[in-house]
Amino acid sequence: MKALGPTRIALRLLMRNRMAVGSMIVLSVIVGLALAAPILPIPPQERINLEYGPRPPSPAHPLGTDDLGRDLLSRVLYGTRISLAVGLLATAVSLVIGVTYGAVAGYAGGRLDNVMMRVVDILYGLPWMFLVIILLVVFGRSILNLFIALGAVQWLTMSRIVRGQVLSVKEKEYVEAARAVGCGRRRFLFRHILPNVLGPVIVYSTLMVPAVMLEESFLSFLGLGVPDPYASLGKLAKAGADAMQSYPWMLIFPGAVLTVILFSLNFVGDGLRDALDPQLKK
């Protein structure tokens, strides 16, 4: 019998988790449709048809049309692209900041670590969303500013996780052994520390994407999200909430798609956590 590597074990555990697999399938369908939106046989999202106006779902417009007669399916698919893009990019921003910060603190240890973590503690207790709103108002609403602001807020937890992981790995015997045989700093970092930090980082990043998407839609809802002519799911939900009395489908479909995406991402993240840390789930 062949022994399985840790990655294979994790993969096998993940595949046994029915909710996670189901979520991955749902996600792939939604992401696939969103990516394929430009080549799908649907009306362009910005085509306004005032004479047609807002109408409930029909064979021509599966999700109906909005108050300007735009095809809602098309709007929702393009909105999904924007929401996902913001989620992924902001996560990438916070990944870079958080991993670097946490790794430096954990690796350096001692006084530097102390100071760096005190800073994180203090920042942690601040009402960040308010500063993000002020920043967006002041520097203007562009997609770039949006994901920098969101990413800049999200890195705190990431840096804590990475630091904790680096600290605990540093104390392990095999690391000491690697040191003893004269392992270079570079090889040490990339061969021994990094692979052990990777698991929690992957899990937390997966969970951060829905968190950021939620925050983006939250800002969009307040009128501070992605600027026109782009529409994210949150912005569509806002338009729907304003018009729900007469055209409830305008709220229900974007809201449902957003909820399903967040739901699936949360399940995949949970599944990954259980798979990468088998001790957690007995």
């Binding site: 839609s217 949150g234 806002k238 909430a241 229900i252 809201g255 957003l258 949360n266 399940f267």
Partner: peptide, 18 residues
């Protein structure tokens, strides 16, 4: 609870009103 975590409260609010 998983559904509750995933429904944004700005979607839930209008839906409750509806």
């Amino acid at each position: 609870s998983m559904t509750g975590i995933s429904i944004p409260n700005f979607v839930l609010g209008p839906l409750l009103v509806l």
